[in-house]
Amino acid sequence: MEYMALVKRLDPHVEEEVTVEIEGVEFTGFAFICPYEIEVGQKYPVSIGFTILDEFKVREIYENEKELERLDQGFGYCIRGLLDENSINAGIIILDEDEYFADYPDLIGKYVEMEVDRISIEFLEKGIHEEL
């Protein structure tokens, strides 16, 4: 799913670290694809995914929660939301491009939480950024 993301912060030390706001949800992600220079205060078209570096686990939760909770000061997040076949709705839709959710068919349509090593932000080439 494509969104327009407002760039809130660029890390001066880690080039790929960017804090964005999408539909009222603010988070810090890893800009793994960025085909142009981005600026704080501008909006850009993006797609959101996640990266798992080690073991992936999903567990059902019994609260109807949708949130992104940052773990420490790194890129890691606990994502809570409604699981779909190829995405999770955590207030914004985060895509499962590597088909991790295929291993959890019994959790589709349920609220879950999972820890990811980073939320990936792909800045798309479509469109021109908008000034606020």
Rank of each mutant, 00 (worst) to 15 (best):
M1R: 06
M1E: 05
Y3R: 12
H13E: 03
V14G: 04
V14M: 03
E15A: 06
E17V: 06
I22G: 09
I22M: 03
G29K: 10
G29F: 08
F32E: 11
I33F: 05
C34S: 11
I38E: 04
V40E: 12
Q42S: 09
P45G: 02
P45K: 02
I48F: 10
I48S: 03
F50V: 14
E55H: 13
F56N: 03
F56H: 11
V58Y: 09
V58T: 07
V58E: 00
R59A: 09
R59P: 01
I61C: 06
E63V: 14
N64E: 14
E65F: 04
E65K: 13
E67C: 05
E67R: 13
E67F: 03
L68S: 09
L68M: 10
E69Y: 11
L71A: 14
F75S: 05
F75E: 02
G76F: 04
Y77I: 05
C78T: 11
L82K: 13
D84S: 15
D84C: 13
E85N: 11
S87G: 09
A90H: 10
A90Q: 07
I92V: 15
I94L: 15
E99C: 13
F101G: 07
F101M: 04
F101T: 02
D103P: 00
D106A: 14
K110E: 04
K110G: 05
E115F: 08
V116T: 11
I121D: 08
E122T: 11
L124N: 14
G127K: 13
H129G: 02
E130W: 15
